[in-house]
């Protein structure tokens, strides 16, 4: 391998490390925001102000379905990343396509749940419990939405330009973001949906 090429590679690896760390710092600060929302929920979840409590509202099978869908999408994103590092464009499109579809399925289930609550008259302003619930779960849903938009844009460029180094880097950050949202959801599943029935 020529000296120049080696230097080039080392330079690129160092750049990747910096980008990764920068994105990691963003993820950790985002995690702090979720932490505060979790703390608010933990403190306020009993304040139902005469409105319904979690156990009267939540559907356990729905929460399980959402969790399994998101877990699977995190897995397929991981497989997509392996394909991306091997330079297999078709596999990348397949795995991230599945990830996108699962993300969309998750989001539609969540929106249907929200719509049902609102239709029954249980809104953001019904009680402190519902305010903290909608804000916590809604913030996660907003992250999923932006992740889906980001994924669609990146896949569009993969189709158009092929798997070049900057796109592989973007896919790496995207999958990191997606795994992160999966971890946050695990705690929503446990703290919001399961603990309501304890």
């Amino acid at each position: 391998m020529a000296e120049a090429e080696l230097a080039e590679r080392r330079h690129e690896a160092a750049y990747n490390d910096r980008v990764m760390f920068g994105f990691w710092v963003y993820l950790m600060t985002d995690l702090l925001m979720f932490t505060v929302l979790f703390a608010v929920y933990a403190v306020l979840h009993g304040n139902t102000a005469g409105g319904p409590a979690g156990r009267e509202l939540f559907s356990q099978p729905l929460a399980l379905a959402e969790t399994l869908i998101l877990l699977t999408s995190s897995f397929t994103a991981g497989l997509g990343m392996i394909a991306a590092r091997r330079g297999r464009k078709q596999q990348v499109l397949l795995w991230f396509g599945i990830t996108f579809a699962l993300g969309l399925a998750f989001l539609s289930l969540e929106l249907r749940e929200f719509a049902e609550f609102v239709r029954e008259g249980h809104t953001l302003s019904t009680s402190a419990f519902l305010s903290s619930f909608f804000v916590l779960v809604g913030t996660h849903g907003l992250h999923i939405t932006s992740g889906l938009l980001w994924m669609a844009a990146t896949l569009f460029f993969v189709v158009k330009r092929g798997l070049n180094a900057p796109l592989v880097r973007k896919l790496t950050l995207l999958s990191l973001f997606w795994h992160f949202l999966d971890i946050v959801w695990i705690f929503i599943f446990t703290v919001v949906y399961l603990m309501a029935f304890v």
Binding site: L68, L71, T72, S74, F75, I186, F189
Partner: peptide, 9 residues
Amino acid sequence: GFVLSVAFT
């Protein structure tokens, strides 16, 4: 990782 996380769910 996937199998373990499904089990832990």
